[in-house]
């Protein structure tokens, strides 16, 4: 559907494996170093490793990604930033549509493809989100949610270097998300890299206001983000209506 031939598909997969191989080596190393300390928290059996990765990611964010995002926010005017976010959001809508269809929610998928159609044409290549103005609402889907919908449990919570928090299920979803990402498949490497970096900076800039809230609200930022992530993903799999779980400690 994205013009990826089988051959290309194999190359993408190989590239992904190559990219992930050092990560798993790192995983093993960190496990050895930290002894993969068991925390006693059944929600987070590899907490020692996860905390180490979390600290690493925080360092990268603090020294590189966040300052760049702040610079972007300070220099690029809001309407232009919205345009950039809309452009990437429009590409994302294609995947959201595919995932909705895979989850059997065909009307939602049609809604998503309709958004892409309207925003790509009337919205000038997606820079304007005309569809939202028309009341065609954006959804939130990805392959991790699709696997969840198909019955896959979340599995262990893992914090990946650079990619951040995932469950095992969402890690598998991430691999598919990356493989199906048309920007990652662009052959012109400099153009691809510019787009990937722009998307990262645009996404990060959108989160800047949340930083302060999390810093202030959290006693332990690691636990706070983990528990938020796990609840959020569970809710998304059920499209906002998860079955009620008995959380009482009686």
């Amino acid at each position: 559907m994205f013009g990826i031939t089988h051959e290309k598909d194999a190359i993408v997969k190989f590239a992904l494996i190559k990219r992930l191989a050092p990560l798993s080596a790192l995983f093993m190393l960190a496990c050895t170093l930290t002894g993969c300390a068991t925390s006693g928290n059944p929600k987070d059996p590899i907490e020692g490793f996860n905390r180490a990765m979390f600290a690493f990611n925080e360092g990268v964010d603090k020294t590189v990604i966040k300052p760049v995002a702040q610079g972007y926010e300070a220099t690029v005017p809001q309407p232009a930033r919205n345009g950039v976010a809309n452009f990437f959001g429009n590409i994302e809508d294609v995947f959201i549509g595919v995932n909705n269809v895979l989850q059997g929610k065909v009307p939602d998928g049609i809604n998503d493809f309709g958004r892409v159609l309207v925003n790509t044409t009337l919205g000038v290549f997606g820079f304007m989100d005309v569809a939202s103005d028309m009341g065609v609402e954006k959804h939130n889907e990805d392959f991790g949610q699709t696997f969840g919908r198909w019955g896959a449990g979340p599995g262990t919570y893992v914090v990946w270097p650079l990619f951040g928090p995932r469950t095992v299920r969402d890690s598998a979803g991430l691999v598919v998300d990356l493989a199906a990402d048309p920007i990652g498949a662009i052959n012109d490497i400099p153009a691809r890299n510019i787009l990937l970096v722009t998307r990262l900076v645009s996404d990060r800039a959108a989160l800047l206001p949340a930083d302060k809230v999390i810093e202030e609200a959290a006693l332990d930022k690691y636990s706070y983000i983990r528990d938020g992530y796990l609840q959020r993903r569970r809710s998304l799999v059920y499209d906002g209506n998860p079955p009620r779980r008995d959380e009482s400690n009686e």
């Binding site: 928290n41 332990d220 706070y224 528990d227 609840q231 569970r234 959380e247």
Partner: peptide
């Protein structure tokens, strides 16, 4: 609950780990 994230649940683990480490007074202090 915001976007599926319950306020009470979000603090439960943070509180219980603090209590496990330093008791109820430890949590109050922190």
């Amino acid at each position: 609950t915001i976007g599926g994230i319950s306020m009470v649940t979000s603090y439960r683990d943070q509180f219980s780990q603090q209590i496990a480490a330093d008791g109820v007074d430890g949590l109050i202090k922190s």
